[in-house]
Design a protein around this nucleic acid. Structure first.
Lengths: 144, 144
DNA sequence: TTTACTGCAAACCGTTTGCAGTTCC
DNA sequence: GGAACTGCAAACGGTTTGCAGTAAA
């Protein structure tokens, strides 16, 4: 199965180097949202010489091209979301900071016009916070 | 008018130094969400010798005590939200990164149980993204 | 061949920390 | 008096950048 992402990038006359290919492949293969560091690690498994700088550069370009999205839901590192096809919300673990996609619930909230204060609203992000199964289990064990 | 925040802090036997008082006062006076740097700047206007480290320490303590909340909605610096009384959502400008509170809309979205993937969900954050009045005006001017 | 990407290392920004000195209770 | 706070400066983690070399088209 050919990579949709790579196909799209080729169409946009993106100069395709081994490094960029590997970054794109890593992102496509993953269903969780990786940090730049994690992308670098996985990319190095396939292409040991790839540098951190190149990973960062590539991620930023992909974001600029609208092919992936940055997600900043917790302290620390940004995460990269390759799933930009349809809108979805995020479920984030307050303890281990894992992020999981959830299909967006039917009705999207909107700002009451009165409260809009002159803002031009273009989108809504919904982030559910809580504990992932593993961390919930660990927390339960600790408090007993 | 005495400070509610300071009153509450005194009750919690919080050691009250000039530096801490000034940080608390700066936060209370503001209705927008400041970065640590901005808090430092405003605090310095009243107490020139106050150090960055102390501002950071104090902000972190206030967060730990549950008196203010950290808000991380964009790249860059965390912002501090003194308005923890009742739940509210945020309106953030994609261009200048200003944050404004909006009273939360009636119904809060929830994760369909099926999609919960074993997570223990404890809260929802809703962030509206767009352009603040000033930036919307600037954008309109530019594109014409 | 030319333009643009890569790698390195140094710089950067926001934040945290260790420590010596000082202050609040 | 003693625990707890302050300021400084150095360290930190994540990310960006300048530049010389290299490779895609």
């Amino acid at each position: 199965m050919a990579s949709d992402l790579l196909d799209r990038l080729r169409e946009q006359q993106w100069r395709l180097s081994p490094q960029r290919r590997v970054v794109a492949e890593v992102l496509e293969g993953e269903h969780v949202h990786l940090t730049a560091e994690q992308v670098h690690e996985l990319a190095q498994r396939r292409l040991p010489e790839i540098s951190r700088a190149t990973v960062y550069n590539t991620l930023n370009e992909l974001v600029a091209m609208g092919e992936i999205a940055e997600v900043q839901v917790t302290d620390g590192a940004k995460r990269y979301d390759p799933n930009i096809g349809d809108t979805h919300d995020h479920l984030v673990c307050e303890r281990c900071h894992t992020i999981r996609d959830v299909p967006s619930s039917g009705t999207r909230p909107t700002v009451p016009t009165r409260a809009r204060a002159g803002f031009l609203v273009t989108g809504v992000d919904i982030t559910y916070r809580g504990l992932c199964p593993d961390c919930a289990r660990a927390a339960r064990r600790k408090e007993s």
